[in-house]
């Protein structure tokens, strides 16, 4: 499965465009992480727990998007976009979407 955020695959010919596919997930970190992040807010710096949270969520969202693409018979997803938002305090939502295609 090829996943890319450009609109074509160099050196390959796209034979079929199968429509939009998407993957989303909402995740939360346990309260210890939230407390650590609250403390970190005082001194600044990277919130490792939340970086991890977002990385996990992004991977999950892409996995689900790819699962949708596979389910409709595509072998590549083009023009992938991500959108992130915090739905509730401490819970992050990650959404990935793109166009499923068949490339040769």
């Amino acid at each position: 499965m090829i996943v890319t955020n450009i609109e074509y695959i160099p050196g390959k010919k796209i034979t079929q465009h199968l429509g939009m596919v998407s993957g989303n997930t909402v995740r939360a970190k346990h309260v210890g992480r939230d407390l650590m992040a609250g403390l970190k807010n005082i001194v600044g710096g990277e919130l490792k727990g939340y970086t991890e949270l977002l990385t996990e969520s992004r991977e999950e969202a892409v996995r689900r998007m790819v699962a949708q693409a596979e389910a409709i018979g595509a072998n590549a997803v083009l023009n992938v976009r991500f959108s992130t938002s915090s739905v509730a305090a401490g819970a992050a939502e990650l959404f990935a979407y793109g166009t499923a295609v068949v490339a040769e």
């Binding site: 997930t25 909402v26 995740r27 939360a28 346990h30 309260v31 992480r33 739905v87 305090a89 819970a91």
Partner: peptide, 10 residues
């Protein structure tokens, strides 16, 4: 939110 993990409700 206390436990962490996937928030399937949302």
């Amino acid at each position: 939110n206390l436990v962490g993990g996937r928030v399937s409700a949302y």
